[in-house]
């Protein structure tokens, strides 16, 4: 099924400048969709996931309008046409 990733500006150099990447994923979960994205654009992986395969603390991944950590995280099932937004949290100092 096809899902859509919204790419934040700091990561767009890694996707050829694209702010929106459509992927065709053979699986049904958020993890499956990310694996397709990582295969297309390898640099994204380490920017948003740490060595424990968890989203970095200040990176939020929204499925529609819901943050994925409040759902099932990477195991969250997706529907065709789902919009997945990678959004840096307001942080820093």
């Amino acid at each position: 099924m096809k899902v859509h990733f919204c790419i934040p500006r700091p990561l767009r150099p890694l996707t050829g400048g694209q702010s929106r990447v459509d992927v065709e994923t053979p699986g049904r979960t958020l993890q499956d969709a990310f694996e397709v994205l990582f295969a297309l654009y390898p640099g994204i992986h380490d920017r948003i996931l740490d060595e424990k395969n968890e989203f970095r603390q200040h990176v939020n991944v929204f499925i529609g309008n819901t943050e994925s950590r409040t759902l099932a995280g990477l195991a969250t099932p997706l529907a065709p046409g789902t919009e997945i937004s990678i959004i840096p949290a307001i942080s820093g100092g």
Binding site: P13, L14, G16, G17, Q18, L40, Y41, P42, G43
Partner: peptide
């Protein structure tokens, strides 16, 4: 680089 490849392919 992948970014330029992606842009050209698009």
């Amino acid at each position: 680089p992948p970014s330029l490849t992606a842009a050209i392919m698009r």
